[in-house]
Design a protein around this nucleic acid. Structure first.
Lengths: 230, 230
DNA sequence: ATTTTGTTAACTGTTAACAATTCCGAGGAG
DNA sequence: CTCCTCGGAATTGTTAACAGTTAACAAAAT
């Protein structure tokens, strides 16, 4: 029915046998599939998405497609104009500025909250993710780099134990991935070191240091992104 | 068709004759109506909303209702569980903490960005809104107080000229109004003065002062809210 | 050549019917 | 008395068809 069904939002309940029992809701499956198509660049910025077309492609009716459009519009990956259609967002330099200044504020708050209550297992998790990032960078796999980078940042934010903060950040995270796809950026080498500094500060439980390391890192990324904007 | 159609998101285009020409989209009308019903306390926290019921009440089919549910869920006024229904959010003390810490971060960023580029007309607008707030407080009109308070804060954020910041804040603003309704709070008297301090700092273009005044104000409101939580 | 006006095709918003799941109480077994 | 099972009712998820709007194009007028 669907090319590839990636359940992301709803962590599938499983039966004792490990089988996924949860009756799938098409809308969310479509949402995830579309998101991945966007991140993979198959749906390009500016492109118009037509309900009936996608409905046929996925073998569903237009209802679930509409729901997915609504979701992705709220996340900021699509924009929709009443009675005129919905399109993949095309980011401008102003958008980049907005993205990174906001991420800076949110992630800054996050690390300061996370630092005092962080545990050794959390540190390990972050460390593993950084290794994965290095690995991906060495190979030169753009998609994997994007994924790993965002995974690290997302984990940091999640450690603040602040639901709304995480939800708000996730929107920006998705848009950042769209940006990376749009610029087809292999993350600049600078960042490899930046991340370690953040992690070290967190390991010491030094929230203030972690914050400045993080905001510096994001300011650098922001400049670098705006610079390579064609 | 609809009891009261309040278009909030889409500022209705009007013809030279003053007639609203824009063909109304039911979904957004329903969204606004539901939001107002929630703020007015007619739909109480925890209450379950049933698609068919509301569809009949508004004289529409279930489609637009579903769309409205999706919107309000994304805003944080409703929560919906797959195949199980959607409910008016019931806020807990933890939620209050989240709301105010996040608002603090966002509005802090906002004033610092707004301060350097603020004009006399902006100051006037804010001043008028504060007068309105005082007025409402003197009369003791809870709903008007909530509206005026949120209007002031919203204007401050909008002056930062940062689309994503404003969008993110608006979700929190809506949830704050829900909170006020839930606690049926006439804003504590402290705040009257607090707001003036913020405005004065902005008038001087002093972003840092405005930030501390604002975050102090929000910290106070947070404590006061948690305190009166029954 | 350029603008204007019909005209048509495509698409979104909406509706109503169908399918599948959940909820809730009655009845029976332990 | 408690727990479990088994319908039936209620409710959400999905589908397919209809209606109004927008966009694109060709013909006519300036």
């Amino acid at each position: 029915m669907l090319d590839a069904v990636a359940t992301r939002r709803s962590p599938a309940p499983t039966s004792p046998l490990g089988l996924s029992i949860a009756p799938m809701v098409l809308s969310s499956a479509v949402t995830d599939t579309l998101r991945n198509l966007i991140f993979a660049g198959e749906l390009q910025p500016g492109e118009r998405l037509i309900e009936a077309q996608l409905a046929e492609r996925f073998g569903t009716s237009r209802g679930p497609i509409r729901d997915a459009f609504a979701d992705l519009t709220n996340v900021g990956l699509l924009t929709s104009v009443e009675r005129r259609g919905t399109f993949v967002v095309r980011l401008t330099p102003d958008d980049i500025d907005e993205l990174y200044t906001l991420r800076s504020a949110l992630e800054g708050l996050a690390v300061e909250r996370a630092a005092p209550q962080i545990g050794p297992d959390d540190i390990d998790r972050l460390s593993v993710q950084l290794d994965r990032l290095d690995q991906a960078q060495r190979i030169g796999d753009t998609v994997a780099v994007g994924e790993a980078d965002m995974a690290f940042h997302r984990t940091v934010v999640s450690l603040a134990r602040h639901r709304r903060l995480l939800e708000g950040w996730e929107r920006l995270g998705d848009q950042t991935r769209l940006l990376m796809q749009e610029l087809s950026v292999v993350e600049p080498w600078i960042q490899a070191g930046d991340h370690r500094v953040i992690l070290d500060a967190l390991r010491r439980g030094d929230g203030v240091a972690a914050r400045t390391a993080l905001t510096d890192h994001l300011a650098g990324a922001r400049r670098s992104m705006i610079a390579r904007f064609s």
